[in-house]
Design a protein around this nucleic acid. Structure first.
Lengths: 220, 220
DNA sequence: CTTGCAACAATTATCGATAATCGATAATGG
DNA sequence: CCATTATCGATTATCGATAATTGTTGCAAG
């Protein structure tokens, strides 16, 4: 009986690869909020067919980074002050739910994963790398949600990550001080890893709120 | 100055129309959970091109009724016991958030919309039409979320409606008695319409929980 | 009988062409 | 000059063909 490999070979489709490139361009500011993503221009630019671009845009819609307006085209999302508030409230809601569920079901593997991300987050904080910190903050919560083991929660949370990342990357000067981020995440990590679901829930609740108030207050 | 019409003329795309037909088939049991939706079969069946089917399937993915497995095809979702639990928890979470936001921002138009749906729900309950009642229950909450005015919450909640509807339609014998549904929704409607956000939040929280326990307990 | 390989059919993924729609600009009429 | 209509170019939507990949079946070998 041959030993089967742990991981299956998997090559991303052309659609998925193209989506990754476009996503990167969006997050790196090559495209501005509200920009129209013209299918034929992208097709010519990436050297693929229009239909491959349509497939790629489908992935970006799933990430909530792009909206499709039938017969008019695809557009990079625009984030209003209202959107910021909504995203913050929804992050608060889903992150705290994720923290509770993760604490209820935590495993050794889950602890290790979270610890690793938290270590990376601390390193970025100490290096004063705000952009990296923003990414790792969101990755931390993504990991919490993944560790929670709810695929459906994961799917919903995924739709918040892209817009939050897009917004925070452009407003990183409003992001809290690095040490504040560590001080907010460390007790949350502890509560989750020790299985204290209600404490994790409360900490994740409180955790997001100062962010939202701080970021929303100044006029955009 | 000519009087402009209130509503713009809008014709659904072929993709969207095809998606509606397939969605209807899924919800009416023509397709079973886990069934593979073969692009070319659907294209022949509906008399459209494969690419139109791909576009339609994109819409159904957005509704969380269909999953795409690259290079293998598209499949009608399967709902495990775990899924039922997750959907219930997430409904609980988003419906109560929606109830709170709706109560905070309620308008006369919002009250009228909710009242109309509630009236339809009562009519279905009195007629003992369980299938209709299930639909209207979900429509009630969809309306609450819409009235709440958070487009992003609406987008997230939308991903729960399809699966919930698919599940409840097949398990309607486990759905609470019609009068119970009325008794649960009437005080919720009152709280929202009177602007009592915290009461609406609590009622929506309590409202979903008995459902989840009742439905999940029996073995599927 | 079981396992492995090859062949073939089925299907998905991608291509590029054409039809339909929209947006911009020019022409016309009041 | 302004408002309306017509025209044209740009782009999206849909088509159908072909390439790539997967899944099934049959056959041979151990």
């Amino acid at each position: 009986m041959r030993k089967m490999p742990k991981a299956r070979l998997s090559r991303p489709s052309l659609e998925a690869e193209t989506a990754n490139l476009i996503r990167s361009d969006i997050l790196n500011g090559v495209w501005k909020q509200g920009d129209r993503l013209v299918e034929m221009d992208l097709a010519n630019s990436f050297g693929v067919s229009q239909s491959t671009i349509r497939g790629a845009l489908k992935y970006l819609q799933a990430d909530a980074l792009v909206v499709h307006r039938p017969r008019r085209g695809h557009f990079v999302i625009e984030i209003s002050e209202q959107d910021v508030r909504e995203i913050s409230i929804l992050r608060d809601t889903l992150e705290s739910l994720g923290a509770r569920l993760a604490a209820q079901t935590i495993t050794e593997e889950g602890r290790n994963r979270l610890q690793r991300v938290f270590n990376d987050l601390c390193a970025a904080a100490h290096a004063g790398n705000r952009q990296k910190l923003i990414e790792l903050d969101l990755l931390f919560h993504r990991t919490v949600v993944e560790v929670a083991g709810s695929e459906r929660l994961n799917e919903l949370y995924k739709r918040l990550v892209g817009p939050a990342l897009l917004f925070l990357r452009m407003a990183d000067h409003l992001y809290p001080e690095p040490q504040v981020i560590i001080d907010l995440h460390e007790p949350l990590l502890s509560a989750i890893c020790s299985g204290d679901a209600e404490k994790a829930f409360a900490l994740a609740h409180r955790h997001t709120e100062p962010d939202a108030q701080r970021i929303v207050q100044p006029k955009l």
